Simulated scan of single mutants.
Amino acid sequence: MAGHSKWSNIKHRKGAQDAKRGKLFQKLARQIFVAAKQGDPDPEMNPDLRLAIEKARSNNMPKDNIDRAVKKAKGDVGGNEYEDVVYEGYGPGGVAVMVNVLTDNKNRTAPEVRHAFSKHGGNLGENGCVSFMFDRKGFITIDRSATEVEEDDIMLEAIEAGADELETTDDFFEIYTEPENFQNVKHALEAYPVQTAEVTMIPQTYTPLEEEETVEQMLKLIDMLEDNDDVQDIWHNLDADQEVLEKLT
């Protein structure tokens, strides 16, 4: 049954925020650098690097930028050492928030993340305080307006390739997979107008915010975190009315 998708609304807003191309490319380059440095520099042999490169390409990052990040990792002996850290906490109204960072200095990054939470009505918590509310999943969306494929047909293809489930909204087919099956499903659906394809954290439940002021405060928290160069991904379970989101963004 087609309808409202909380997850799509969140992702589409994030896509609009990611229009800050310079900062986005810098973050994507760091992800590629770390994946290439910590594993095989050949993306065919390094799943993390392959995902990082695919994410960069999906955001229209120039090939030269991608190649430069990989080459830098190959030659960066004794250079910057980045650590992958996830901070957890609650935003205004009790929204669960996870912040994934790549940092070369946790003593700098942790206070900055904590300040963002406290400034906008939230609080940073201990590891594990909200992560149990999320599942790591492959997530693929297909634009319904750009294809005439029927729901049953695309569901059959996705399930045969290893997908767990498909949901249909007004605008998209949303496919969910286990992380290990993500590449197979993505490859099987390449002929369709894929809008989003990533391994991410999917909320099990959502926290509704009805007051416009509280929603605005939550969006300001997201904005402040996104402006931090160390922050790579922000996952949350905000559920807000689409009209309110569009008004505030």
Rank of each mutant, 00 (worst) to 15 (best):
E88T: 12
G78F: 15
I140Q: 05
D40K: 03
S131N: 00
R30T: 07
G121E: 15
F134R: 03
K71G: 15
A69L: 09
E88D: 02
S145M: 09
Q232E: 14
L245V: 15
E246D: 08
S145L: 15
K74L: 15
F33Y: 13
V101A: 04
L209N: 01
V149F: 04
K247I: 12
H4N: 14
L49V: 03
A19W: 07
H12R: 06
V77T: 06
D152W: 06
A29M: 11
V244W: 02
L219H: 06
I234E: 12
Q242E: 13
G138L: 00
L225D: 11
K247G: 12
T177I: 13
M155K: 05
E174T: 13
D84K: 03
D227E: 10
F173S: 10
F33P: 04
M133F: 13
I142W: 11
N59A: 11
T207G: 02
Q232L: 15
Y192D: 14
I222K: 09
D64V: 15
R50E: 00
V95Y: 11
K27N: 09
G138T: 05
G15C: 00
R21L: 04
E198K: 07
M133P: 03
G122R: 04
D170C: 02
M98L: 13
M218R: 05
Q195A: 05
A240G: 06
E112H: 00
E167Q: 04
D64Q: 11
Q17W: 12
T200V: 15
E167R: 07
T177C: 14
E210M: 00
A110K: 04
K11C: 15
N228F: 05
N9F: 08
K37G: 12
L189T: 05
K137I: 12
A56L: 10
P43C: 06
L156E: 15
D230E: 07
A36L: 04
L166R: 10
G3P: 12
H187V: 13
I222R: 10
N65I: 15
I234D: 14
A161N: 08
A69V: 10
R108V: 08
L225W: 13
L24I: 03
G39P: 03
T177W: 13
A29G: 10
F132W: 12
N107V: 09
D67N: 11
Q242F: 05
L221C: 10
V244R: 03
L248M: 14
N60A: 10
Y206L: 00
E180W: 03
D143G: 06
G138W: 02
L124G: 06
